[in-house]
Nucleic acid binder design. Structure first.
Length: 867
RNA sequence: GCGGACGUGGCGGAACCGGUAGACGCAACAGACUUAAAAUCUGUCGAGGGUAACCUCGUGGGGGUUCGAGUCCCCCCGUCCGCACCA
């Protein structure tokens, strides 16, 4: 018996697949199409085992669908623009382009080593000018269609490095490199009008267009879009109450003659209002800050928080009281006005009314500043005389009280009544508001797709003419300091205006990398040298039938891609509005983290662990074991697939990544796990290799099994049915468990006929093929199968062999298991009940008791209730 | 803080629609083979009690619904993902 040698077999089969063009997709076949896509990788350096898991999942689906008779498209490429390349340039002096392409070369060969069934002829990187030229074309089309515009928005500004910081580069309010306190600064930037599509993006989540998406992702997107119906209304300045020194105190500031416009989803609680709060960057706050240095200090404090919603929400609720008051629309109360750090300028109107009894943040704020807390909503079952708000706001529905004309109404009625009243008074209007904001796509960086626009002193902003595309990045740039190398490039930005020929400058911002990944799936399917998309091919392949990626992309990437697809459709490039028919979000591969005494991260291979204590492999120094975390380059808790492939082969790595843990859950890499996979590979080989040529000696299309073969044949067909169902439903871990069970059964039924063994072994080979494709080819060749197993049609289960003659039922007395009972599969309930009651164990437990009830669940259980 | 998930033996996990908890794998232990080790094969393997047949407990914690709860409901604890310039 020969030993299976993956080091020989794996490259051999990879070469044969390539020679046969086994995975190159065309549109010509009469088969139904199936487009499988895993989220393409960022070329960070080397692939790690987490990539292997992701791509192995897609590969199982792709290979299975191909066998099941589909014309499969399974492409691969690189999400190649982004900050790490630029950071590397600053640290090591390597050019982002060289760094990126050399990473791609390494990662491509690593991926090829994994034996994925990819159509490599379609490969591209988003940093290829041949790709981004089309992105620039798309952008110009979108701009023309009115989907793109410019407006001011806030960015994190590092005042020492003079550069814009990403949220992740802001650590505790400080720049990661300079350590300087970060400020918020306004920049004029490009935006795409995703809010115009909000309604349709929302509707598609529920109208069946995304029926193939997981519920949690749809829920997250629904909440992110955040449609809410509410009331936009103005609170007027109370007359002659402003006593601010040196200012025109009696008149409202110009632009605010009508008061402050707020947005609320709870107009029913208007009588519970005790203050008005506006965002620190609200124009009114800016206005008062001109003459109020305390307010200026407060605002600049707020701005040091950075721009991320997370830090703003987590920060202690603080406010700065303005020297003005607003009148309540329904009574003669006057409400103080605060500039408050928890009010967001981007949402609604940037101003709210605070109702402490009905909102936890408002309540915390009211306690802090000693404001009134009038309760206005009485929860069901509560007593108006005793009901009190103390430390918890009541946000649920109820009956209005202390609320004038709203008293006695339900929350719902009161919302309608208050809205109508405000509308009658001419103070406001009911409206729909979205939490979703327009998509800012400008980035002040070099390593991104240039935005094809020119700023002309005479003509304003002008599109780069189609003939001048692509706008290429300058080959050389200065990465020695932070900031945007394009902006400080000596020549690149100086151009003449395509309109008037006058002096002009290029847009020096590049696109957000989410733009690159918002249409790559269409380019894979339908490349065209002259146009972004070959519409005929796109109409054939789109949408992606199965998209696979991490749940961390549940909102941004997936929402942007959905919106981009709508824009592409509107501009005539595509015919679908949803890019991904089915979505699967897989879990991450996690690993323990290690640090040495100097607090430096260590690779797992640099650490030895004995009896729970970790030491350095080289010098034995103690190592502290950190939490199990997502594998990341920065924390060095990565496992290289190459080393695994060297020792055990790609099949073992693939098998282990898909066994054990359910694909949607995180999986921890363990060395013993991959050893187990290696053992299984040898068990399969040991089962198959003695049966050399077996398929040549029997005719599987002509059943020639006898009765003695029935147990093995039943197992074979149950396994075919089970594995097929498991793959269809992304239960790879269960499919693998079934293959193990099949292996065990094969051994128990070693005495079966050649025909039944041939059937079993060919099924085993084919069922394992999507998981361990190289091994399967080797097995297929040994058995004498025709052609490549990757081209063989998927085995079919015979329904007659799936039928069971008898079933074993659990016997319960008062809900506790007391025994079991084997009955014919078609036994009627009466017979089952009778047999159950005469069971010895049951008799013992009902002795001296009266049987009150017998519950028979056919095929499952019998429960006897007795007391 | 807000939104979304998850929590089952020593470990990864299985348990379909509320119906026999722990499939399958890993580790461990015992045995076979071997001069020996590795590999391989066979067996045991949730906890406690009992010579045994069996009994009791057990799915993060606390309540509830049900003939029956890992599964449904309420509250709590812990971990992970996202929060718009990481990809």
């Amino acid at each position: 018996m020969s030993r299976y040698n993956p080091k020989e077999a794996e490259p051999k089969w990879q070469a044969r697949w390539q020679a046969a063009g086994a995975f190159n997709a065309g549109t010509g076949s009469g088969k139904p199409k199936y487009y499988v896509l895993e989220m393409f990788p960022y070329p960070s350096g080397r692939i790690h085992i987490g990539h292997v898991r992701n791509y192995a999942m897609g590969d199982v689906i792709a290979r299975y669908k191909k066998a099941a008779g589909f014309n499969v498209l399974h492409p691969m490429g690189w999400d190649a623009f982004g900050m790490p390349a630029e950071n590397a340039a600053m640290q090591t002096g390597s050019h982002p382009r060289d760094w990126t392409y050399s990473n791609i070369d390494i990662m491509r060969s690593q991926l090829k080593q994994m034996g994925l069934s990819i159509d490599w002829s379609r490969e591209f990187a988003t940093c290829d000018p041949e790709y981004y030229v089309h992105q620039q074309r798309l952008f110009l089309a979108f701009w023309k269609h009115g989907f793109a515009y410019r407006k001011e928005s806030s960015v994190n500004w590092d005042p020492v490095d003079n550069t814009v910081l990403a949220n992740e580069q802001v650590i505790d309010g400080k720049g990661w490199r300079s350590g300087a306190a970060v400020e918020r600064r306004k920049l004029s930037q490009w935006f795409l009008k995703i809010t115009d599509a909000a309604d349709d993006l929302l509707a598609a989540l529920d109208d069946g267009r995304l029926a193939g998406w997981p519920d949690n992702v749809r829920t997250m997107q629904r909440n992110w879009i955040g449609k809410s119906n509410g009331l936009a209304m103005k609170f007027r300045f109370a007359a002659a109450t402003t006593v601010e020194e040196g200012a025109n105190t009696n008149a409202p500031p110009s632009g605010f003659e009508d008061g402050i416009e707020i947005f609320t989803t709870r107009p029913d609680t208007l009588f519970g209002a005790s203050f008005i709060a506006i965002a620190p960057d609200h124009p009114l706050a800016m206005h008062y800050a001109e003459h109020d240095s305390d307010l200026r200090d407060f605002i600049s404090d707020c701005q040091k928080l950075g721009t991320s919603e997370e830090v703003i929400e987590k920060a202690e609720k603080r406010g700065h009281k303005l020297n003005v008051e607003m009148s309540h629309p329904f009574d003669d109360r006057r409400l103080p006005v605060y500039v408050a750090n928890f009010v967001l300028m981007q949402y609604g109107t940037g101003a709210i009314f605070g109702c402490p009894s009905g909102d936890q943040r408002d309540l915390d704020f009211a306690h802090k500043y000693g404001l009134a807390i009038p309760p206005v909503v009485l929860p069901p079952e509560a007593d108006a005389k005793t009901f009190k708000i103390e430390t918890e706001a009541y946000t649920g529905p109820g009956t209005l009280f202390n609320s004038g004309f709203l008293d006695g109404m339900t929350t719902e009625e009161a919302i309608a009544a208050a809205t109508a009243k405000i509308e009658d008074m001419g103070l406001g209007k009911g409206m729909t508001q979205y939490r979703l904001r327009d998509w800012g796509v400008s980035r002040q960086r070099y390593w991104g797709c240039p935005i094809p626009a020119i700023h002309c002193e005479q003509c304003g902003i002008v599109a780069v003419p189609a003939a001048d595309l692509p706008v290429r990045l300058p080959a050389e740039a200065d990465f020695s300091e932070p900031g945007n190398p394009l902006d400080r490039h000596p020549t690149w930005k100086h151009v003449s205006c395509p309109n008037c020929g006058g002096k002009a400058r290029r847009e020096t911002d590049t696109f957000d990398t989410f733009v690159d990944s918002s249409w790559y799936f269409a380019r894979f399917a339908a490349p065209d040298p002259d146009k972004p998309i070959d519409k005929g091919a796109a109409d054939y392949w789109m949408p992606v039938d199965q998209y696979i990626g991490g749940v961390e992309h549940a909102i941004l990437h997936l929402l942007y891609a959905r919106y981009f697809t709508r824009m592409m459709k509107a501009c005539g490039y595509l015919s679908v509005d949803e890019p991904f028919a089915n979505l699967f979000t897989q879990g991450m591969v996690v690993h323990e983290t290690y640090r040495d005494e100097a607090d430096e991260w260590l690779l797992p291979e640099e650490v030895v662990i004995e009896k729970g204590a970790a030491r350095r492999a080289d010098n034995g120094a103690p190592v502290s074991i950190g939490p199990i975390e997502k594998m990341s380059k920065s924390k060095k808790n990565v496992v290289s697939p190459e080393a695994i492939a060297e020792t055990y082969g790609a099949d073992a790595a693939r098998w282990f990544m898909l066994s054990d843990s359910p694909p949607e859950r995180d999986v921890e890499w363990t060395d013993s796990g991959v050893e187990g996979a290696w053992k299984l590979i040898n068990r399969i080989w040991d089962a198959v290799s003695p049966a050399e040529g077996l398929l040549k000696n029997v005719d599987l299309s002509n059943p020639a099994a006898d009765d003695a073969d029935k147990p093995l044949r039943q197992t074979t067909h149950a396994t075919i049915a089970g594995v097929t169902d498991d793959i269809e439903n992304f239960r790879f871990n269960k499919a693998i468990a079934r293959i193990y069970e099949f292996m065990n059964a094969l051994k128990k039924n070693a005495a079966s006929s050649d025909w039944a063994r041939a059937e079993a072994l060919s099924a085993l080979t084919q069922l394992a093929a999507p998981f361990t494709p190289h091994l399967a080819e080797e097995c297929w060749e040994t058995l004498g199968g025709e052609g490549l197993v990757c081209n063989a049609p998927w085995p079919q289960a015979d329904p007659e062999l799936l039928a069971r003659d008898s079933v074993i039922l659990g016997l319960q007395v008062n809900g506790k298991r007391r025994g079991e009972l084997e009955v014919a599969a078609d036994a009627d309930n009466e017979a089952v009940e009778k047999a159950a009651l005469s069971d010895e164990a049951v008799k013992r437990h009902i002795e001296g008791k009266t049987v009150r009830k017998v519950v028979v669940v056919p095929g499952r259980i019998v429960n006897i209730v007795a007391n």
